[in-house]
Amino acid sequence: MNFKDLQKLLKANEGVTNISTLRENVIKFDLDKSISKEFFKKLKEEYYFEHCSLITAIDNQPDFELVYHLSCLSGELSVGNTKMAAMVEVHIHLTRDSPSIDSVSDLWFGANWHEREAFDLMGIYFIGHPDLRRVLLPEGFAGHPLRKDYVYEIHEEEW
């Protein structure tokens, strides 16, 4: 399937706004939180994005934003007549009070630990994740350090 056709197909979906091409092989768009799970399933099964590269959590000060980078490694999506690998960048906005979204770790196993890291450092809760606990910080750690309003308290640690 050609990458340009993909752009047209994406436009046809509701909930997808602000479509733009960053580079020849990257499409970027915003997605509604409510249809995220079905849309990702569609991306994986119909549009051949079988690799989850990265899940980023950003703290724009009023609310949170999740950025998903998905790529196609098998070559099913061809970009013009080059051999480039196609990639898609999905932005989802979440509220500040209780940031939560459906987990995609049953679609892509690679997303499992990325979601755990987003929970660990930013505090975003993923519904349906099999094992959501801290990955980089120790278990008893309080707070989510990568938030902009995180204050580092100097306290004595018991070793």
Binding site: E50, H51, C52, S53, L73, S74, G75, K83, M84, A85, W108, F109, G110, A111
Partner: peptide, 22 residues
């Protein structure tokens, strides 16, 4: 590809994917 493995580990499976070309 589902597990998120890339690089020489993926190329050891016969998948021709290298970011220097792709």
């Amino acid at each position: 590809m589902n597990l998120g493995i890339t690089g020489p580990n993926l190329r050891g499976c016969g998948v021709k994917h290298d970011l220097r070309r792709d």
